[in-house]
Design a protein around this nucleic acid. Structure first.
Lengths: 130, 130
DNA sequence: TCGAACCATCACATGGATGTGAAGGTCAAT
DNA sequence: ATTGACCTTCACATCCATGTGATGGTTCGA
């Protein structure tokens, strides 16, 4: 498919698809006329990239992580240098921390919203900032 | 305490503490000489801010979320306008999505690392990109 | 009284993910 | 043959969280 369709199906601006390619997160072949041509799996890949990006990972890291993910696990299997392993381990920790933090705060917000929704707003209303 | 101590205790550059104040995420009183003066709870607050920031929330959102969090729940209780509730609900969804995505990918990475560590690297090594 | 270690404000720089638009090629339908 | 909807590259702009440094005030101990 061409960039327009990929853009539509992933809900991602064309600009960004080109950017991801520039960052070597995705690849595209070219039609004789120079148009980018994407294959089907790219759709999922872009979705995953967006997810990770939105989750706060920079493209630099995503680039390292992606190859270790998809179904056909070993499809692209870069030499797992110790240095890269270390990066992954580090990022693993960061992700766990993030998850904890996010979960924590999400639960707090949920609880808060529940309280408000039940017409059961917090007991005291001490101060309302300007 | 003054900014130096807060910076040390939260492991946060002074520059950022001033920035958070500018974004109205924290407040500081001033000593007669103009120095910022922080109270104890600010330490936790900064930590929480950093966590949320690292989790990918922008200060704009954090500002809205923070008041709904801390222990003395109703301490700052802005009028919960329907519009703000909507924002919170929306952000709640986003956080959940994020958590799912992060968890998903983290598990995949963990699994991958386990495999590599066990001297049990993926079966096939198809292609190593330049 | 001098220097070191704080603090202040201001302002400009950077990096990463994006937005936006110009200038132009391709192609299908009219 | 022209129009309109695609596509290309290039380049500059924006937002946000940060870095960095200039310039100067305050406080304290040697």
């Amino acid at each position: 498919m061409r960039i327009g369709e990929l853009s539509a199906r992933t809900n991602t601006p064309r600009r960004l698809l080109r950017y991801y390619e520039e960052q070597r997160l995705i690849v595209a072949s070219r039609s004789p006329n120079g148009y980018r041509e994407y294959d089907e799996p790219t759709v999922d890949r872009v979705l995953q990239i967006r997810g990770l990006l939105d989750a706060g990972l920079p493209t630099r890291i995503i680039k390292q992580i992606l190859p270790c993910l998809g179904k056909p696990r070993a499809l692209y299997f870069p030499d797992a240098t110790p240095e890269m392993i270390a990066t992954l381990e580090h990022e693993l920790d960061r992700m766990t921390t993030r998850i904890t933090c996010l979960t924590h705060n999400r639960d707090a917000i949920a609880e808060y919203l529940d309280a408000v929704r039940d017409g059961n707003p917090p007991d005291v209303l001490v101060e309302a900032p300007a």
